[in-house]
Amino acid sequence: MSLLTPAVAFGAALVLFVWLGSGVWVNFDAHARGSDHPGLWGVLSPLSGIVLFYYLLWWRRGRSRRYPPSRWERATAIVAVAGFGGLAVGSLVSPPDPTSQLTTWPVAFAGCLPVAYWAVGRRFDPTGDSFINDRL
């Protein structure tokens, strides 16, 4: 059996899409919080988990938003949350084989999309800013 089946190729493409979506969300969020270099945050945070955790847990907390999140920012946040949630669920229910995980992950991602939509729409910003209950 070939390792590059259409399901595995779709899973790999979806991984890249979520990776890009998380970088775009960080870029949007850093710009709204007044960063001098939001593009740098957007590029470095998906490349390094350490930079992403630093951004989410330290840098972002001390700065309030200057304007509410746009529709595109919410959409990229939904993709990022569903992607990481799908990755966690998919790794729990599939065998440790990377091929099996890449075929299970798109299904888990699709299952996490409604939950991510609800979570982002219900409470977009965990820092308590005033833009929390705006809907898409």
Rank of each mutant, 00 (worst) to 15 (best):
M1S: 06
L3T: 15
L4W: 13
A7D: 05
V8A: 01
A12M: 13
A13C: 09
A13G: 11
L14P: 09
L14C: 05
L20W: 12
G21H: 07
S22G: 08
G23S: 07
V24A: 06
V24G: 03
W25D: 00
N27H: 13
F28N: 05
D29K: 08
A30S: 12
H31T: 13
S35M: 10
G39N: 06
L40Q: 07
L40F: 07
V43I: 15
V43Q: 00
L44H: 06
L47F: 14
G49Q: 11
L52P: 09
F53T: 11
F53M: 11
Y55W: 14
L56F: 12
R61P: 07
G62D: 12
G62W: 13
S64L: 13
R65L: 15
P68V: 09
R71V: 15
R71D: 10
R74S: 07
A77Y: 10
I78R: 05
V79M: 02
V81N: 00
V81F: 06
V81P: 01
G83N: 00
G83Y: 05
G85V: 06
G85W: 00
L87I: 11
G90E: 05
L92A: 08
V93M: 03
D97L: 09
D97W: 14
P98S: 01
T99N: 01
Q101Y: 11
T104W: 04
P106S: 03
P106W: 00
F109Y: 13
F109L: 08
P114C: 03
A119C: 08
R123G: 06
R123T: 15
R123S: 05
F124G: 03
F124C: 08
F124M: 10
T127V: 14
G128C: 12
I132S: 07
L136F: 12
